[in-house]
Design a protein around this nucleic acid. Structure first.
Length: 639
RNA sequence: GGCGAUGUAGCUCAGAUGGUCAGAGCAUACGGCUCAUAUCCGUAGUGUCCGGGGUUCAAUUCCCUGCAUCGCCA
């Protein structure tokens, strides 16, 4: 059996964030799982590097597009190893072979008449030198240049997507697993109930040169999706490489819901036009939301995978992401939630189970795997529970319900802990006739741990390895072969290992919920002492994130006497509208370092989105901006 | 404005051709154990299953409508 699993190629106009990491961890886990099942697996990820946004981002960074994409793409490829993500191929749309493949495919589709030349109409902003989507507009205006875009038309090439609409509808309907979870297939069918428009696939070189030239007209370059989606073929060496024949028939894509339409509509119709079978499955996942608000760069609440790993370790991060999100739905992210998972599921339940078991084997079994004796019902039940777990685990992993799979695994973790309490080996050891059952108990327990290490392997490879080492287990074979009960060899020496997971102190807990430890104590002392009116706690103050921001641009807001539109570095650029025009001239404050509230909910003032608030003293009507007494790094925290 | 999704215990979320479907984990309280990373086991709660209307012997589950949040599109 073969498996071909891909992540999207990520657009390099931003650094890797949690969403990228999730898609890629999902794909990696699936790849590891399928390998464990004995499949031949190919796992591909990469970066998407063409288009006008890249040109702009490069300009902003004062780099050539080439330098820029090389730098950001490297940030992606370097982001994955620390997350234990091991793709077989990392593709870039600026790779020579990709460019050639896109060329060949365009030529082929063109020759068969599925690409034609026509008018494209859209809203064009002269300042940006590009078409804007309706969504980008703020109050009908370009948010960057505050002018209304013009409705202009230009000549472009189109892909005859509409031709394949009926075929696609039929394909989705007759293949229930084509797009999963089901809700996304429904969404696409609803979309397809309206006539499908053809897809504009070019941009004139007069406006954009950072792209793949059309083979049949060098005055145009390929625009976005027709370039990007083809990466899934290029990565297999389409058309002649044998990998293509081997893996294309089993292709499965993992994406986030924001790029559903290109993958569910554009891509299958493109493949159809090329005369290729479509991919097998599209797995669509939701977003990680940060508390109440969505993760966004301007709010400065982007979670960097690298920082997560540094704080929690790879396996915890992987476990958390797969355990806490129902695949397909949105989920909330918070550091506290990760800490909670780490402490309860990992440290207390699994880690402690492993630790106590091995310690007792050392104490009561002379540090060796015992041979089991006659099974009692309680031992048989433990063994049966493992069989149930393996069955559920396989079923759920196959369909990307990782949270369900892990739930089933942790059910056994709980049962194993219970099994220990019910048998109370420390009592058995004292009893005259206890030795016989004691051997069975520890054999059962160690076998259970062996199976837990097995199923946990695709999710937490490092932890699985530690467990296997501790148990003295060989890790060759497949999931099926290693699943069979009773593979530990009696007499194998078991050494007490280091703890699997450390327990963490919960960081700044929101309210007064900061007493996890002192459980034994009476709850005599009240947890929330009354505070005088107007007094806030340190925790409450801690919610306000103050930062130093450097004003890099300032201009008056039209039709407003009081408002200035500021562009600040904190350290990312953000726009803040401040009511200080009566006290300051725009040109006087450029370069000034002020203190801002960085995590204020964005507000729209005179049609401009303000992402934060500048602090100023108020002397009557006169405002005096807060500054720092010495120049510092923009973005420094104020506390 | 159109389409769609979501709205279930303090928190994060599961759930079902309409009838033991009111659930899990975390958090909380109490009890037990001591092998273990002060861990584990047991017990105990609370919910107008978003509001309103309808279909039905029966709706949290189906239909309509309203509200809120989110997404896609115009």
């Amino acid at each position: 059996m073969n498996t071909y699993i891909t992540t999207p190629i990520f657009y390099v106009n931003a650094q890797p964030h949690l969403g990228h990491a999730y898609s890629t961890i999902v794909a990696d886990t699936f790849a590891r799982y399928k390998r464990l099942c004995g499949n031949t697996v190919r796992f591909q990820t990469g970066t998407d590097e063409h288009g006008d946004k890249i040109v702009q981002a490069a300009e902003a960074a004062d780099e050539s597009p080439r330098q820029y994409v090389d730098r950001i793409s490297a940030m992606f490829s370097e982001a994955w190893p620390p997350l234990a993500i091991e793709p077989d191929n990392f593709i870039r749309t600026t790779d020579a072979d990709h460019i050639k493949t896109v060329h060949d495919i365009l030529q082929k589709v063109y020759e068969q008449g599925d690409i034609y030349f026509s008018e494209y109409e859209g809203l064009y902003c002269k300042g940006c030198e590009r078409f804007l989507t309706e969504k980008e507009l703020v109050g009908g205006k370009c948010p960057d240049h505050l002018c209304e875009p013009e409705r202009i038309s230009e000549q472009n090439y189109f892909f005859r997507m509409s031709k394949y609409q009926d075929w696609l509808i039929d394909h989705i309907k007759t293949n229930p697993d084509f797009i999963t979870p089901q809700r996304y297939a429904n969404e696409m069918l609803a979309f397809l109930s309206e006539p499908l428009e053809d897809l504009c696939i070019s941009r004139p070189t007069s406006r954009l040169t950072w792209g793949i030239p059309l083979p049949f007209d060098d005055k145009f370059v390929t625009y976005v999706w027709f370039d990007a989606l083809i990466n899934y073929l290029t990565g297999l060496g389409y058309p002649e490489n044998e990998k293509f024949a081997q893996f294309w028939p089993v292709a499965e894509h993992v994406i986030a819901k924001d790029i559903l339409k290109p993958h569910a509509i554009f891509w299958p119709t493109m493949l159809k036009s090329m005369g290729l079978p479509t991919y097998q499955k599209l797995h669509v996942h939701g977003y990680w939301n940060m508390g109440e608000t969505k993760m966004s760069k301007s709010l400065g609440n982007v979670v960097r995978p690298k920082e997560m790993v540094e704080e929690f370790g790879v396996d915890v991060v992987r476990y958390f992401l797969l355990r806490d999100m129902s695949f397909g739905l949105d989920s909330g992210y918070s550091n506290d939630a990760v800490v909670a998972r780490q402490n309860s599921d990992l440290a207390n339940d699994l880690g402690n189970l492993f630790s106590r078991s091995l310690t007792m084997v050392g104490k009561f079994m002379d540090g060796k795997v015992p041979a089991p004796n006659q099974l009692r019902p309680i031992d048989q039940e433990m063994q049966d529970a493992c069989a149930v777990m393996l069955e559920t685990y396989g079923r759920e992993m196959d369909i990307f319900r990782f949270n369900r799979a892990l739930e089933a695994v942790w059910k056994v973790v709980g049962l194993a802990n219970k099994y220990i309490v019910e048998n109370a080996p420390w009592e058995m050891a004292k009893a005259e006739d206890g030795q016989k059952n004691l051997a069975t108990v520890f054999h059962t327990l160690l076998e259970t741990l062996r199976l837990l290490a097995l199923v946990v392997e695709p999710i937490m490879p490092g932890t699985a390895a530690k467990m296997n080492t501790g148990l003295g287990v060989e890790t060759t074979g497949t999931l099926a072969s290693r699943s069979a009960w009773g593979q530990l060899i009696p007499g194998t020496v078991i050494a007490k290992p280091e703890p699997l997971f450390p327990r963490l102190e919960k960081k700044k807990a929101p309210k007064g919920q900061q007493q996890p430890k002192a459980k034994k104590k009476k709850s005599a002392e009240k947890k929330s002492e009354k505070l005088p009116e107007g007094v806030i706690t340190f925790e409450e103050f801690g919610k306000v994130e103050l930062r130093v921001a450097e004003i890099v641009a300032a201009e008056k807001v039209k039709k407003s006497d009081r408002l200035l539109k500021l562009t600040v570095k904190a350290p990312e650029e953000r726009t803040i509208v401040a009511g200080i025009a009566e006290s300051y001239q725009p040109e006087d404050i450029i370069g000034l370092q002020v203190i801002i509230v960085a995590n204020l909910k964005p507000a729209k003032l005179m049609g401009i989105s303000s992402q934060g608030m500048v602090l100023a003293a108020k002397d009557g009507d006169h405002l005096i901006l807060s500054t720092v007494s010495q120049t510092t790094t923009p973005g420094s925290k104020v506390a």
